[in-house]
């Protein structure tokens, strides 16, 4: 009678396994359908020795949980945490990529449908193909499209300029009129740069660097009015470090999920590179990588050195607070 109502997970009778054992185990593990459960419970009520066995099995499970559940509340070991973050980052990127792919596919379908419909209409009406102006005018209600520069300003963002991580691109990559600092000495390659038009019309730059193991450092550089001040702060929020400083009319914000010393060393290299006199609009050769800890000596005697001694540590920056 038990075999007639088994669930998909319960295999057919096996000569090596007692028929009752299969059902009792499935009952203990809550894998029976409600009618099966009722039948088993009815059976157990008249077979106390089997009911005791069921109770023993349940107690075994409870004993296992009592022994091992505490590991669920323990923090993961450091190595596992780092790997978890890497996996999370990879999956997040893939998720964004997939979403973009879906949007692009949807857009392509819409474009094909519209173009196909238009071509079909033109064919049946006998009009020659080409000359999309009427269609555009009809679709936009006769309004003229915005000039490209206005559209970009409205979005506050210019098209991404993704640099190929090669020495040539590192030397030539430009953002807001200065060459991108070379961080290969620290194991980081430039993978992307973008100009960002701020609300006040000034141009800021975002540079993205990535190491071979997938760690990322993002640098924002924006001009500021207050050229005289020099503030350097290092703070952390969770695994992410924030290094902020001003120098010679520029504000630098560096964000990265890397260790503190590497963060400081990279900051020092960037500070030194971007403080060097360079003519805007011309590509200066990639300077030699900074040796040692990356703390670069000022070339003009006035460039502030970015290191442990020059750091400002506001109270909020010591812990997990906002930078």
């Amino acid at each position: 009678m038990w075999g007639r109502k088994r669930t998909a997970d319960i295999p057919p009778p096996n000569r090596n396994v007692d028929h009752w054992d299969r059902l009792i185990n499935a009952y203990v593990d809550d894998m029976l359908t409600p009618p099966q459960r009722l039948e088993v419970e009815e059976f157990l009520s008249i077979h106390p020795e089997v009911a005791r066995r069921v109770n023993d099995y349940r107690n075994q499970n409870r004993g296992l949980h009592d022994l091992y559940d505490r590991y669920l509340s323990e923090p993961l070991p450091e190595g596992a945490q780092i790997l978890e973050q890497h996996i999370m980052r990879k999956l997040s990127r893939r998720s964004i990529f997939n979403a973009c792919g879906r949007v692009a596919a949807a857009a392509a379908i819409v474009i094909l449908a519209v173009a196909g419909g238009w071509a079909g209409a033109q064919y049946y009406l006998g009009a020659p193909l080409g000359g999309s102006a009427p269609l555009v005018a009809a679709a936009t209600g006769g309004a003229r499209p915005l000039p490209t520069s206005v559209a970009r300003r409205a979005e506050n963002v210019q098209p991404a300029k993704v640099a190929v991580p090669s020495p040539a691109s590192v030397a030539g990559a430009r953002a807001a009129g200065f060459p991108a600092p070379d961080l290969r000495a620290h194991g980081f390659q430039l993978t992307g740069s973008r100009e960002i038009v701020k609300v006040d019309g000034a141009t800021a730059a975002r540079l993205i660097y990535e190491s071979k193991d997938g760690s990322q450092v993002t640098l924002y550089v924006a001009p500021i009015d207050d050229a005289g001040t020099r503030k350097i702060s290092l703070s952390r929020r969770g695994p992410v470090w924030f290094l902020l400083w001003n120098n010679k009319g520029r504000a630098y914000s560096m964000i990265g999920e890397i260790d503190r010393d590497t963060m400081l060393a990279i900051g020092a290299t960037i500070n030194a590179r971007l403080s060097e006199p360079a003519t805007p609009g011309t590509a200066s050769p990639v300077p030699a990588p900074a040796p040692g800890d990356g703390r670069v000596r000022a070339t003009d005697g006035k460039t502030p050195e970015l290191n442990e001694k020059t750091l400002i540590r506001p109270a909020a920056s010591q812990g997990q607070g906002e930078p």
Partner: peptide, 19 residues
């Protein structure tokens, strides 16, 4: 934007460690 796998990643790793 969360990947469906990323959402339960920590719990799965802890479960794996317990096992």
């Amino acid at each position: 934007m969360n990947h469906p796998v990323a959402a339960g990643l920590r719990a799965n790793i802890k479960s794996l460690r317990r096992y």
